[in-house]
Design a protein around this nucleic acid. Structure first.
Lengths: 155, 155
DNA sequence: CGGTAATAGTGAACCAGGTTGTCTATCTGT
DNA sequence: ACAGATAGACAACCTGGTTCACTATTACCG
């Protein structure tokens, strides 16, 4: 009744690879003065983008409810990665923008990810790593957001 | 201020690859009569194994507290994938075992994962897929459980 | 122009899963 | 035989998700 045919390994390895990168990213971010950054914050801030967004818009891009997006924004605001201001042309809207600190996280994350990628390249070879990325691109959706990072555990 | 250097793509693709497989697995499981199965259930049931475990033991293998393991077991019990019985030789312990239905999920999951893997092989080639798995094995931990699937979002 | 409909944000109640702390019941070992 | 370790359960709390309900504002249209 042993259940571990080849098919089981692939998703596991993909997830472990992801986890290794994310864990090392956040260990390094903590060392660099961002101990409060959480895995999803990077994704969310990436989704907010340089132009800013609103809760509804953010919810749509991330594939979660506007209320969930609102809560996440609140958290990011509390940590100081984001700030909100009313839109003068539509006073219902509140525009969410990255603060300097928020941008700093993204910039550092980018640098750290590059370093981690280089470490992988040193282990398996730059050529193989490029192939790996190319292959993954072929079997994954092109729309890179809508990860539903939050939510794929739920109902 | 655009932030998307090469380093950002790798973790994203790994995660997307994982998500695609998991989502398709559960879509298919739902079609095959297991609409209540959740992503983590598979991992947990895999960790329970054919011999059965206890909450404490399960917590240790998964890398979560015994209470968390206990809650998950409760959920699995409610769905009917697992059943508990006192250990006659140590009446403190409650041994958790997969039910027929639980085993059925694992068997079907294995089959579905194999099919999904075959689909990927058809797209990128069996050879490249084997290389991809081999490369990931080199950069990920060998201990395949202790995913901390639950918990890597938290503090 | 004014009334209806759509939209943005918020709050409340709930759920899943995680944590820690505490408590009881049951071994285990000296 | 008793002290200490262990298994399980319960409570309180956190995060991040959901839906439902409500207000305030804007947009559309007859």
């Amino acid at each position: 009744m042993s259940i571990d045919p080849p098919g089981f390994e692939l998703p596991l390895r993909l997830f472990l690879g992801f986890r290794v990168l994310i864990d090392e990213l956040h260990a390094e971010l903590a060392r660099q003065g961002h101990p409060h950054a959480r895995p999803m914050h990077g994704f969310v801030m990436q989704a907010i983008g340089p132009e800013g967004t609103t809760a509804v818009e953010l919810g749509r891009t991330l594939g979660v409810s506007k209320q969930a997006a609102g809560k996440t924004i609140e958290t990011l605001e509390r940590i100081g990665y984001v700030e909100r201001a009313r839109d003068p042309r539509d006073t219902r809207r509140k525009i969410v923008r990255l603060t300097e600190s928020g941008v700093d996280v993204l910039v550092r994350s980018a640098r750290i990810f590059d370093e981690l990628r280089a470490r992988w390249a040193a282990v398996i070879g730059e050529e193989r790593l490029r192939e790996l990325e190319a292959d993954l691109r072929k079997v994954t959706p092109h729309d890179v957001f809508r990860l539903d990072v939050p939510g794929w555990f739920g109902p």
